[in-house]
Design a protein around this nucleic acid. Structure first.
Length: 191
DNA sequence: AACAACCTCAACCGCATCAGA
DNA sequence: GTCTGATGCGGTTGAGGTTGT
C-alpha cells in the first residue's frame, strides 16, 4: 500500500534533493498546504513519490527548523525523554521545538547511544530492560500508551508527575519552557 | 600523500495506523 | 464493517566528510 504506485517506484527520482526541487516543493506547499503529498509531487512537477516530498518538507524545508548543534540542554532533555519514552523519536522531537525526529534519531544513534552504553556499563544497568514492550503497541502515544508508560518502569520509580498533563499538547507555546523546566526538575536522579 | 576506519546525516524502505468512501 | 489510499513512524542504508595511521 505504498503511495508510489505510478509511475513505478524505479522511475521516481531518488537521492539528494536539488535546490530547484526544494524551491518547487516549497512553492506548491505554500499554495496547497502540507497535505496530499502525492498531489503536491504531481503539481510541483517533481518526479518524486509523495513520501519523499513529505520527508523533505518535514526534515528540511519546514519553517522554524532549528539547524546546527544540539545544545547541552537539548541533549539532556533527549536523554531524559528517551529514558522515559524509548525510541519514539517523533514524540521526543515534539518536545524539542525546531528539531525533527530524524535529527534526534541520528543524534541518538551517533552520539547518545554510546554515551548511554558507557554509563550502563559503569552502573550495570541496561536501558533495554523494561522498555522494549513499549515499542510498537504504544507507538503513537495515544491514551493506552500513557498508561503503559507509567507502568512500564522506564521512568524513575520516584518520579511523581501527572502523565496526562505531561502529554497535554494544548497551549503548547506558552507551556513549552515551563514544561522543560519541570521535567528537568522531576528527573534529577538521572546520570 | 595515500589509504583505511570512522562518523554524520539525508534519504529510503517497510510497516502500522488513520481516515474517508 | 470493509476496503483502499494517505500519512506517520522507526529502522536502516549509503554517500560524503573527517580523522587517524
Amino acid at each position: 500500500m505504498e503511495d508510489n504506485v505510478l509511475p513505478n517506484r524505479s522511475e521516481f527520482n531518488k537521492g539528494p534533493w536539488t535546490a530547484e526541487e526544494d524551491r518547487k516543493l516549497a512553492e506548491v506547499i505554500a499554495v496547497h498546504g502540507a497535505r496530499r503529498w502525492k498531489t503536491i509531487a504531481n503539481i510541483a512537477g517533481l518526479n518524486r513519490c509523495g513520501k519523499s516530498c513529505r520527508l523533505r518538507w518535514m526534515n528540511y524545508l519546514r519553517p522554524n527548523i532549528k539547524r546546527g548543534n544540539i545544545t547541552d540542554q537539548e541533549e539532556d532533555l533527549i536523554l531524559r525523554l528517551h529514558k522515559l519514552l524509548g525510541n519514539r523519536w517523533s514524540l521526543i522531537a515534539g518536545r524539542l521545538p525546531g528539531r525533527t525526529d530524524n535529527e534526534i534519531k541520528n543524534y541518538w544513534n551517533s552520539h547518545l547511544s554510546k554515551k548511554v552504553n558507557q554509563n550502563e556499563k559503569q552502573s550495570g544497568v541496561s536501558a533495554r530492560q523494561g522498555c522494549k514492550a513499549q515499542k510498537r503497541s504504544v507507538k503513537n502515544a495515544k491514551e493506552p500508551a500513557r498508561e503503559e508508560i507509567t507502568s512500564a518502569g522506564c521512568e524513575d520509580s520516584n518520579t511523581d508527575f501527572n502523565v496526562d498533563e505531561f502529554f497535554d499538547f494544548s497551549n503548547e507555546d506558552t507551556r513549552n519552557l515551563e514544561w522543560v523546566r519541570r521535567f528537568l526538575e522531576v528527573d534529577e536522579g538521572f546520570n
